[in-house]
Amino acid sequence: MGDRDWRPFIYGGLASIVAEFGTFPIDTTKTRLQIQGQKIDPRHVELRYTGMVDCFVKTSRQEGIKALYCGIWPAVLRQATYGTIKFGTYYSLKKALGARRADGGAAEHLPTDTLCAALAGGLSSAIANPTDVLKVRMQVGDEKRNLVRCFVSIHRAEGVAGLWRGVGPTSQRAALIAAVELPVYDACKRRLQPALGDAPLNHLASSLLASLGSAVASTPLDVVRTRLMNQRNVKDSRGPAQRIYRGTIDCFVQTVRNEGFLALYKGFVPTWLRMGPWNIIFFLTYEQLKQFY
């Protein structure tokens, strides 16, 4: 495996954290747009925002600019785990499997890249799921406390299961995003290299193309994931816990049935607008870190 296998893990984690800080307010607007308009959830029936810009402006005016960064610390903690495992596992697996092929990994092999990316994305997202739950709860505005108090509150009220709420669609979404995003980036980078070289302009164009594909593929699962994470299943001896959605498929079906198919693409614009800059910042940072060694 070589003595440099740890570097993709370190570089992936650091680049993910930098990208998260740069794009987090867009992620907050996406989360709030995905939560609103649920006809079967009395807490979020109202359509408070007409779009990303309206959500950004209203949140800033009504709750302050700081509200756009509510949940940033669990998000950073998530990237420190998710980003590190995801990118490190992907590039390490890709290198190991490539070395076993006849060409020694000299050429891109789409099936191999896709498999490695899906495994890396799903595994890393499942491990980091508790931090994602904390982030969503704080972004929606229901949890205003600090990271530790929010964690303790969810654990006491909902148990350990509350911290892994939505882990199914979260892992599926992450696997899907990774399976599209990483192989597309690598393929575009390789194709554009004769014209642009291994330079920032190449990294910029490749990351934009990768983010568009992953946004289209992942937004429906992202909507389902966000709604499952936001619902409570409170442990209460006075009566049965209220469950709005029974799982991924039920949430998917009820969302389409009650709000229409396009509800699965709520928050698509901020999702894409976030993925674009996020990927640009990430891959530019990652490629620059690679230049150190």
Results as ranks from 00 to 15, higher is better:
residue 183 P to K: 00
residue 26 I to M: 15
residue 258 N to W: 09
residue 259 E to T: 12
residue 239 G to T: 03
residue 130 P to A: 03
residue 38 Q to W: 09
residue 51 G to N: 03
residue 23 T to F: 03
residue 156 R to Y: 09
residue 16 S to P: 01
residue 177 I to E: 07
residue 107 A to V: 14
residue 277 P to H: 07
residue 22 G to A: 13
residue 44 H to S: 08
residue 65 I to D: 10
residue 14 L to V: 08
residue 216 V to K: 03
residue 163 L to M: 05
residue 128 A to P: 02
residue 252 F to K: 14
residue 109 H to C: 04
residue 97 L to I: 00
residue 66 K to E: 03
residue 87 F to T: 03
residue 27 D to T: 15
residue 5 D to H: 07
residue 68 L to A: 04
residue 257 R to M: 11
residue 205 A to R: 09
residue 46 E to R: 06
residue 165 R to H: 02
residue 85 I to V: 11
residue 225 R to E: 15
residue 18 V to E: 03
residue 293 Y to M: 12
residue 209 L to N: 01
residue 46 E to F: 03
residue 217 A to H: 08
residue 73 W to H: 14
residue 187 A to I: 07
residue 118 A to G: 00
residue 98 G to F: 05
residue 271 T to P: 12
residue 249 I to G: 09
residue 211 S to T: 03
residue 128 A to E: 05
residue 97 L to P: 05
residue 206 S to C: 00
residue 160 V to F: 07
residue 45 V to M: 15
residue 122 G to E: 02
residue 175 A to D: 01
residue 245 Y to R: 10
residue 75 A to R: 06
residue 70 C to S: 13
residue 68 L to Y: 10
residue 275 M to S: 14
residue 103 D to C: 04
residue 125 S to Q: 11
residue 174 A to W: 08
residue 5 D to I: 12
residue 12 G to M: 08
residue 201 L to W: 14
residue 231 Q to I: 05
residue 271 T to F: 14
residue 230 N to M: 10
residue 226 T to K: 13
residue 191 R to S: 09
residue 219 T to E: 05
residue 229 M to N: 13
residue 172 Q to F: 15
residue 237 S to I: 10
residue 78 R to A: 14
residue 157 A to S: 06
residue 261 F to L: 15
residue 227 R to K: 13
residue 83 G to Q: 07
residue 1 M to C: 07
residue 235 K to S: 07
residue 159 G to Y: 08
residue 45 V to C: 13
residue 90 Y to K: 03
residue 70 C to L: 12
residue 171 S to M: 01
residue 144 K to H: 15
